[in-house]
Design a protein around this nucleic acid. Sequence first.
RNA 1: GGAGCGUUCGUCUAGUGGUUAGGACACUGCCCUCUCACGGCGGUAGCAGGGGUUCAACUCCCCUACGCUCUACCA
Length: 486
Amino acid sequence: MTTPRVRVRFAPSPTGYLHVGGARTAIFNWLFARRMGGDFLLRVEDTDQARYDANALVELIADLKWLGLDWDEGPEKGGPHEPYFQSQRLPLYQAAARRMLDDGHAYPCFCTSERLEELREQQKVNNLPAGYDRRCRNLPADVAAQRVADGEKHVVRLKAPFHGETVFTDLIRGPISYQNRVLDDMVLLKGDGFPTYHLANVVDDHDMLITHVLRGDEWIPSTPRHILIYKALGYEPPVFCHLPVILAEGGGKLSKRKGAASVGDYRELGYLPEAMVNFLSLLGWSPGEDLEFMERDVLVEKFTLERIHPKSAVFDEKKLEWLNGQYFLRRDAAFFLPLVKPLWAKAGIEVDALPEAYLLHCIALLKDRSKRLTDFTDSLYFFRDPDSYEEKARQKQFGEGSAPLLESLISVIEGVADYSAASIETAYKAFAESNARKVGELIHPTRLAISGMPYGPGLYELMDALGKDTVLRRMKIAVEKISAGF
RNA sequence: GGAGCGUUCGUCUAGUGGUUAGGACACUGCCCUCUCACGGCGGUAGCAGGGGUUCAACUCCCCUACGCUCUACCA
C-alpha cells in the first residue's frame, strides 16, 4: 500500500474577516502541504444562508493572497473536484443523506425549533445533559415516510449509538475518546435542504481526498460525531490534527476592541506578510532549535506536524514588532518603495513628483530604524520643513545661546565647498575643535532645526540627503523662531 | 450541569527519568555611538499544587486547582 499524496484544505466560512486564528490554521495547512509536496485546497463553507456575506469572501481571498498562501485547488483556480463552494454542492450532501436514510443510519425529524428550544430550557433548568431527546427516532418508519411524502418540513438526523465509545487519534494529542451516550442525534440536513457543517465537511473531505484535517481545537468535541458520519457512509476518516487557539494578552479572545484581531488589522498597522507568517508559525510550533527568524522557504523546510504542541498561545505584539523589524533590516530599499509610496502619498506628499532615487535614499536611511511601515510616515521632514519642534528636545536644545550657535553653523555649512556627508562632518569637527565644544553640542540643535525631531538617521547623512539649500533654509527658520520665542 | 482539551520565566518556546532547566520577546545594567534604532556583553524572572512510581522526576501515573472549548436546523 502506498501512502496517498498529502491533501489538506483550509475551509473558512465567509461570515466575517479573516482573524489571526484562522490565518494560523491556513498557514499550518499551507506549510504542511508545501513541506510534503502535497496539495493545499481552499474550500468555501457557505452553507449558512443567514450569515452569508459576499464581501467577506472577497476580503478573505485578498488576505490569504497577501499572506502569500496560494492554493492548488479552489475558488479562482478551479480543480478536479469543482465546485469548491459548498452552496453549489447541495445534491452531493442530499445524496449522502438519502443514503444514510436508506441504510437506516439516519431518520427524518419533524420537531420544530420552538420545541427544541423548550427542550433545551428544560434540560438547563433541571441540570440535565443537553441534547436532542430523540423523539422522532421512534416514529414508525411508514408514518415518517408518509409525513415526508406529504411535504412536511423536517430535518435529517443521524442515528447515534446509545452505548460504547467513539475513539479517534489526534496527531498532537493522542487518543481522545467520547462515550457515545453523550453524543446526541445531530442534524445532517437542515430544514432548508442545506447540510450542516458536519455533513458537508465529511462528504467534501472524502470527495476531495483530504488526508489530514488541520483545524481549530474548538472542533474536537465535534470530531467523534464526524467519525460517526464517516462510519455511516462507509468512509475512511482522515488524520485529525487540532490546533490550539490564539489568545489576546491577558487571556481571552483576540478582538478588535483589544487592538487588532484580523489579518487586515495587522496589515494596516504596518506589518509585513512575511513577518506575520513567521510570527504566527511560532505560535504553537517551533523548529526545535534556537531559530526564530525564518523566511518562508526555511519555514517550509522545517515544518512538521509532530512539533505542533497543544497549548494555546498568547499573541505578543511586541514580538511581532521585533520580528517585523528583523525583516526591515534584511530587505533593501527597493523592496519598500512600492509599500511606502502610498503611505507617503496618503500623508499628503506628492511622491510621484519626486525623483525615485531620492525616495529610495530616504527609505534606506529610515528602514533600519523602523519596525513598522507606518513608521515611515513619522519622518515627513524629508519632504517638507518642520512646522514644529518636538517639545522636550526644543527646551533642551533651543535655549540660551543656541541662536548664535546655529548662525555660526550656518556659516560653517555655507563654507562647505564640496557638500557631502563626509565634508560636512569634517567641517563640523573642525568647528567644534576650534570652539572647544563637543560635536554633540552641534549635532543635536542642528538635527532639531532641520528635522524637528530629536532622533533619526545619522546627522551628516541626513544633511546630505536634504541638500544644502534645504538645510540652510531650515536652520535660518529655526534661528528666527528661537529669536522670536516661538 | 455535563463532556473534552490544556498548564515550563510576564509572553513565545527548548526539554521525552539524572541539565547549573537552554533560547527569544519584553524589562533592565554596561559597551558601541551625534540621537534613535541595530549590534555586543551581563542581570531579574519559570517547571500550578498535592499525592504516588522510581536510586532519581519538569519529564510517567492519579487527584485537586485554574484556564479554555463544546454542549444550535452557526461554523
